[in-house]
């Protein structure tokens, strides 16, 4: 069972607000799904290499060349808050 504390922690990691109802329905849904996927443990995967990329390819590389022009004006046209070319966020304290 997913504890309320765990749900709170997941929401914090994912930067999602806990629902106004305290998350009972959400907790129930997640429990249902996580309980169901837990059946994966039944598979005998001893010695099996995980398949992370279909076809098991290796990485193709690009040459070290500057190819991208300055497009910040186009990129920032849809930005919610910009000033002097900078994206603005509430004050960050280090």
């Amino acid at each position: 069972m997913l504890s309320t504390e765990e749900l709170r922690r997941l929401c914090e990691l994912a930067r999602i607000d806990l629902p106004a109802d305290g998350g009972a329905a959400l907790q129930h849904d997640l429990d249902r799904v996580l309980g169901w996927v837990a059946q994966l443990a039944e598979a005998d995967t001893e010695g099996v290499t995980p398949l992370t990329h279909p076809g098991d390819p290796t990485l193709r590389l690009r040459e070290d060349r500057v190819t991208e022009p300055d497009e910040h004006e186009a990129f920032q046209r849809t930005a919610p808050a910009v000033e002097d070319g900078l994206y603005l966020v509430p004050k960050v304290i280090e």
Binding site: E83, L86, Y87, L88, P90
Partner: peptide, 10 residues
């Protein structure tokens, strides 16, 4: 200070 905001340069 950008009106109390932080500016992000990427």
């Amino acid at each position: 200070d950008f009106h109390g905001m932080t500016g992000i340069d990427l």
